[in-house]
Simulated scan of single mutants.
Amino acid sequence: MYSGGEESDPLRVGVVGTGFIARGLLIALSGQDGMVTGPVLTRRPPGEIAGFPEGVRAVGAVEDLIDGSDIVVECSGDVLHATGVIEEVMAAGLPVVTMDAEVQVTTGSYFAGKGLFTEAEGDQPGCLAALREDAVQMGFHPLVYGNIKGYLNHTPTPEEMDFWAKKQGIRPDKVTAFTDGTKVQIEQALVANGLGAGILRPGLLGPENPDLEAGARLLAEGALRMDRAVSDYVLSPGSPAGVFIAALHDERFADYLRYYKMGDGPVYTLLRTFHLCNLEIAKTIRRVASGGGVLLNNGTDPEISVAAIAKCDLEPGTAIRRGIGSFVVRGSCVRIADAPEHVPIGLITDAVVRKKVRTGDLLSMDDLDLPSSRALEIWEILQGR
């Protein structure tokens, strides 16, 4: 069991990040029995940090984070920064919980075998992993690990994203990644790798259907043809913001499941109608502290990655400050074996286009100059380069 020393000592929870999720987590931790907030690692000047509960201590050095923590939650959303921090924290022997699917699908597999490294319940991937545990314990055989998406626009405008960012109180790049599909692609890549599922096609199938269960059955038919569980999503305006599993069950229980209002089968849809992000992270912290092990990570031998796709023609010399949430590239799931030279969108930070790229093209490593980083080194290690 992880603890702060004596069994009665509260667990010191260090946090990486000071954004929307991190602030919400810090507020949630202030009401948790047996936990206290440890240091908060930030790259911002202390005077620029607002919205923290009273008494929270911001630090600028990873060493201070490690010294004051028994467990660390990483939720910065910055792949390059998070990778370096996670490596140092895990080298010090501390368990790491993330709400950062971006880092999981880019460099997470490097950490999966080096200590306790897990995604948290609360965002869609962690909620799907928790729902799977419940489903399997009830005897269901999952066919589809599904995300529910209400809206998709591969090429939103800056004006549209600025409007929604202000309305929702989050950064424009975050809103853009939600809108153009990058976020759902990243989440479902993590789900596929972590739960041993495949994908039906590059970029996922994502059927559009206001009837969520009809969309789930369509994906289940594809899984049955593949003879393998799949990770995907349904574009279903009006459906709840949650996750679902489409699954089979022993036919001897068909009458029971019909009585329980699960339908006639043979495919049944288990629906979780919410994901509450920062409010749920504490469940995973307690899981780790009590010896419950990993909920979900990217696995040590991932099959799926999230490639960068050009949203527009890119000329040589074009600078891309950040790939995720940009207006020039978006993320799309690929099978690594089919696209070994693809550029993971999580690696694109301060990159420069090297040669002409057409709208819709998948970017290769030859198309970009990427700055040196530990994240890039780890990606090349994972690919055996």
Results as ranks from 00 to 15, higher is better:
residue 70 D to S: 11
residue 296 L to R: 08
residue 286 R to M: 06
residue 150 G to P: 06
residue 88 E to C: 03
residue 245 I to C: 02
residue 79 V to G: 05
residue 147 N to H: 14
residue 171 R to C: 13
residue 217 R to C: 13
residue 203 G to H: 07
residue 303 E to D: 12
residue 132 R to M: 09
residue 373 S to N: 10
residue 325 G to E: 03
residue 210 P to Q: 12
residue 325 G to Q: 05
residue 79 V to P: 03
residue 82 A to P: 04
residue 183 K to D: 08
residue 148 I to A: 07
residue 168 Q to E: 12
residue 360 G to N: 05
residue 247 A to I: 06
residue 269 T to C: 12
residue 144 V to T: 02
residue 26 L to E: 11
residue 303 E to A: 09
residue 142 P to H: 03
residue 65 L to D: 07
residue 244 F to N: 07
residue 286 R to I: 05
residue 276 L to E: 08
residue 182 T to A: 10
residue 278 N to Y: 13
residue 36 V to R: 09
residue 270 L to V: 10
residue 377 E to F: 07
residue 215 G to M: 11
residue 150 G to R: 14
residue 151 Y to V: 14
residue 306 V to W: 05
residue 37 T to P: 02
residue 179 T to N: 06
residue 363 L to Q: 10
residue 204 L to Y: 07
residue 330 R to E: 12
residue 264 D to I: 10
residue 355 K to S: 14
residue 332 S to W: 08
residue 243 V to T: 12
residue 126 G to L: 02
residue 72 V to L: 00
residue 209 N to I: 03
residue 292 G to K: 12
residue 15 V to K: 01
residue 268 Y to R: 04
residue 270 L to S: 01
residue 96 V to M: 04
residue 49 I to N: 12
residue 174 K to T: 15
residue 54 E to F: 08
residue 258 R to N: 13
residue 326 S to A: 04
residue 252 R to H: 07
residue 200 L to D: 01
residue 73 V to Y: 00
residue 123 D to S: 05
residue 361 D to N: 11
residue 29 L to S: 08
residue 178 F to A: 08
residue 106 T to R: 08
residue 224 L to P: 09
residue 18 T to N: 12
residue 265 G to F: 07
residue 258 R to D: 14
residue 347 L to W: 11
residue 179 T to E: 08
residue 82 A to S: 15
residue 84 G to D: 14
residue 143 L to H: 02
residue 41 L to W: 04
residue 70 D to A: 06
residue 129 A to W: 00
residue 106 T to S: 05
residue 320 I to T: 12
residue 295 L to A: 02
residue 76 S to Y: 06
residue 126 G to R: 00
residue 172 P to I: 11
residue 37 T to Q: 03
residue 89 V to T: 02
residue 124 Q to H: 14
residue 134 D to R: 14
residue 99 M to D: 11
